[in-house]
Amino acid sequence: MASMMDAELKEMTQEERATALGMTTEQLNGRTMLIEFNEDEAERFTYPWAPDVDFNKRTELDTDNLTATQVNTRIRELMSEGYGSIVIQNPRGKHALGVGILNKLNLIVDGSLGYFGVGLIDGPTVRINGRVGWSCGENMMSGIIVIEKNAGSTFGAAIRGGDLVCKGSVGSRTGIDMKGGTIIVGGDTGAFSGFMMQRGRMVVCGNAGKNLGDSMYDGTIYVGGKIQSLGVDAVPAALTDLDKAWLTRKLTQYELMPEKGVDHFTKIVAGKQLWNYDNLEPAEKKLIL
């Protein structure tokens, strides 16, 4: 009997399977996430203890013989001295450089970073002239990060705000647990990108690996190339004029605008069938997945 039910479920569409298992397509409406603010209230945009820096005051920091802790400490010291533009020289792939910067800053990395580069930041503008390892920009709150070459896996994990841009290709699980902000990839992305995505927008100018948007709760993914496969509850949607205008503006801003424009992009959103996932019994969960 169970095998017959399994066979019937496999022949159904995702919506038919969800209905057969007692799930509903009703869209849940919670409290709005919209934040209203007065742009004149500067205290909402800076931390009360944040140093006042001058972007025209520039210095260089040679990190060749320094540990990651020493580098990060020195960055904070330079900001307290008023330096608003800092150039990191000889990073040599060190891990966890530039993390936890909660201040306005123009940070330039002349080279490549290792794992967990410039994570947990809130405010700085970062340009990395080389490559980055896993989890670059993890838990980024606001600001801009631009990587000129390639990036490793879990690029922008749990990002909450700002723009995270890689002009090359990235590894798997890009934007895993993404909670806001924008991730832009100039090349390809690996498998399970957008996994458990909750909010925000992801743009992939090249191809996307298998299980794109798997178990995504909300948010939007745009892909300019081929998609190997969609994950659970990720579905195509119509590309609107508003989508095209936003894509054009963002990609032009970071010099990643394709010659053929943005009309060819595929838009992926959440089917929202898993919004009622917790109501299923364990055996039913196994069947739906």
Rank of each mutant, 00 (worst) to 15 (best):
G271R: 03
M178N: 09
W49P: 05
M197F: 01
C205Q: 03
M12P: 08
K167W: 06
G130R: 14
E77R: 03
T69A: 14
M202N: 01
A18E: 01
L280F: 09
L287P: 02
A270F: 06
I86K: 03
T182D: 02
K244Q: 12
Q253R: 06
L21Y: 07
I288D: 00
E39N: 15
I288S: 01
M216K: 10
M23E: 06
N103Q: 10
D6A: 08
T67L: 11
S229V: 14
G187R: 00
V269T: 14
A237K: 11
M178T: 07
M12N: 12
L97T: 11
T13H: 08
F265T: 08
Q228G: 04
Q198A: 07
R76Y: 02
W49H: 13
T252P: 02
E284S: 09
C205T: 05
S142N: 04
A2S: 15
L247M: 10
D214I: 03
Q14Y: 03
T252K: 08
D163A: 05
T63Q: 03
T240D: 01
V126E: 05
K226M: 07
Y222N: 10
A20W: 03
K57V: 00
D64V: 10
M5L: 15
E16N: 07
E77P: 05
I227H: 07
T19P: 00
D263K: 13
E41N: 15
R17K: 13
L120C: 09
R92C: 11
L9P: 07
S135T: 08
K149H: 14
V269C: 13
R74K: 15
F55Y: 07
R17G: 00
P258C: 08
I86C: 08
M196L: 12
Q27P: 05
D243H: 06
K285D: 04
I101S: 01
V99L: 12
T25F: 03
D243A: 06
A234M: 08
K250F: 00
Q27H: 12
Q14G: 04
G161R: 01
V71I: 15
G209D: 06
W275N: 06
D278M: 06
Y83V: 00
C205A: 05
K250A: 02
D278A: 14
G114T: 14
D233G: 03
G22Q: 06
I268G: 05
K57T: 00
A270V: 05
A2M: 15
V235R: 12
L289I: 04
K285P: 07
T220Q: 08
G130V: 14
K226N: 06
E16I: 06
F155H: 04
I144N: 05
G82W: 00
D278R: 13
I88L: 14
V146Y: 01
T13N: 12
G219A: 04
K149Q: 15
P48K: 14
T13F: 05
L78Q: 09
A245C: 10
L9F: 13
S172T: 13
G137V: 04
S112G: 15
Y254T: 02
A158I: 00
E138F: 02
I101N: 01
G187A: 00
I227W: 04
Q27Y: 11
I227F: 06
T13K: 09
K244E: 11
L113P: 15
G187F: 00
V232H: 09
N207L: 04
V99Q: 11
